[in-house]
Amino acid sequence: MEHKKAYGLISDYIDGMLKGEQLKNFLAHLKTCKECGYQLDALKNAVQYAKSGRAEDLPVNFLATLSKRLDEADSKKAKMKFSWPVFMKVSGTVAAMLIVGVLVRQIYDTKTIKADKEWLEAESVQKPAVAERAKDTEELKSVKQGINMAALAPLKSEAPAAITYAKKKSAAPSRANMMKAEALPAAGMASKSAAATAYDMAQEAAPAAAVALEEKEINPFGREVYSGMNSKMAPSMKIIFKNNLIWKNAPGILEDNPWLEKVDFTRQMVVLVNAGEKPTSGYSAKINSIVMQETKIVVLYSETAPEKGAITAQVITYPYSIAIIPTSSKPVEFIRE
C-alpha cells in the first residue's frame, strides 16, 4: 500500500472501519513505515485526549430557568391565539396609511398654498402669464384631444349676454326700455359694445329707469367672452385677474363694458388676452374656449393680424378678449390656436 493512501486511512483504522484486504495491507504498510506509525500514535493520543473530557453537571438553575423560558413561550403562544399579530398587522397598516395620507396631504397643501400665493403675486404685478404656444403644436393637439367637449359649457356669444342685460334693464315700461329693445338687433350679431352703447343711450334718456344690476347677472357660472379693440393696455399679455386692478391697467375694457364693474372678485375672476398696442385696425384677439381640467385651466385663444396689403384704418388699437369664470386656484395655461 502506498504511504499516502495508508496515511489517509489512519483515522478509519482508529475507528475500526478497515476490513479484510484493506486492513491487511494497511497493517503491512504500518510495519515498514515509521512515519505512519508515528502519526498513528499521535492521532490516537489526540483522540484519547478529546475523549478524556468529563461530563459536567448541569448548572444549578438550569431547569428553573428553562421552566421560566417555557412560560414565556407559552404566554407568547397565548398572545398569538389572541390574534395580536393580526390586530397589530391591521392596525399598523392602517396607521401607516393614515400617516402617509396626512403627509401627502400636507405636502400637497403646502404646494397649493405656495402656488396660489405666487399666482396672486404674479397677478398683482401684472406679470405676463404663461407662455404662448405655437399654433398646432403637439401640446395643443393633446390638449384638444383631452377636452371633453360634451362637458364644456359652450362659450356664449357676446350678443346673448348683451341681450340678457338689455332685457333686464327693460323691465320698467319706459322710453328707455323701448330704446333698449331697439338696441337689441344691433347687439344681436355684433358685440357687447353695441349693446353697451344702447344701454348708455337708454340710461341717458331715462336715468330714473336704471336698475342696479344683480350680482348673478354677471356671469355667475359662465364663460362668456367679451372682445374689443380698445383695452388701452399697451403690453401684450395673457393673464388672470383676481382683483379690480384690471380696470386700472386696462381702463378701456370697463369703458366698453361698464357692467363689468359688477364682477364679484370674491367668486369670479377675469381671464384677459390682451394683444397689446397695434398700429392699425384689423388686429383682433379672441378667447375661443376655456377648459377646466382637473389640475389646471386651459385657455385656448387666437390673435389675428390684417393680411398684407389689406386696407386698414391708421389708428392705434388695443385688441383684447376677456372672459369671466368662477374663481379658482388652479394654474392657468394659455395656448394660442
Binding site: G8, I10, S11, D12, I14, D15, M17, A42, L43, N45, A46, V47, Y49, A50
Partner: peptide
C-alpha cells in the same frame, strides 16, 4: 462524515501537539 472526521482529527492532532 468519514472524510470530515479524518481531516478534523488531523487538525486537532496538530493543535494538540
Amino acid at each position: 462524515v468519514k472524510s470530515r472526521i479524518a481531516r478534523a482529527r488531523e487538525a486537532f492532532k496538530q493543535k494538540f501537539i
